[in-house]
């Protein structure tokens, strides 16, 4: 059950032929075989380019130590988010979110988001077909 969101996101991604674009090559920084899901509290957000980012404190589900760690979560560009309805204050410090993401090769707590869902169930973000190669 823990990995259900990951599975759903992965299945949807596969079904729709979805891939995310970064200004960099996704594969050069992130490892598609290392998917992760975590729920935690937003500690900071950066409304910026080439990628908007936010930071979450949450335990790493793949570590025995369940102490919270800080996650650096990469989204698409602020421009793309804005066209999807985001604003600079869509995410705020203290918000609780569940993130499914792909880990960076060089740092397991730097991730590229696949989905971001509020604790209310509202989906804030997903990589979608419109984000291919953006």
């Amino acid at each position: 059950m823990k990995s259900l969101l990951i599975s759903i996101a992965a299945a949807a991604t596969s079904l729709l032929g979805i891939a995310a674009y970064s200004h960099h090559s996704f594969a050069s920084q992130f490892d598609r075989d290392q998917q992760v899901e975590f729920t935690g509290t937003v500690t900071n957000s950066e409304w910026s380019n080439p990628h908007a980012r936010f930071y979450v404190t949450a335990a790493d589900p793949d570590l025995e130590d369940d102490s919270p760690v800080s996650w650096n979560i990469e989204l698409v560009s602020a421009n793309v988010l804005m066209r999807q309805g985001w604003r600079h204050d869509t995410l705020n410090v203290g918000d609780i979110v569940t993130v499914t993401a792909t880990r960076a090769r060089a740092d397991p707590h730097v991730v590229n988001a696949s989905t971001v869902i509020r604790d209310s169930g509202e989906q804030l973000f997903r990589r979608n077909a419109n984000q291919i190669n953006q």
Binding site: M1, K2, L5, A11, A12, G85, G121, Q123, R126, N128
Partner: peptide, 26 residues
């Protein structure tokens, strides 16, 4: 396990398939 997870996941899939709201630029 938290029963809300399947509901959230189902909602997420629905949104994925339905697509997101578009074009909020003024």
């Amino acid at each position: 396990m938290n029963r809300t997870i399947p509901a959230i996941a189902a909602a997420a899939l629905l949104v994925v398939i339905a697509g997101t709201a578009n074009a909020q630029w003024p």
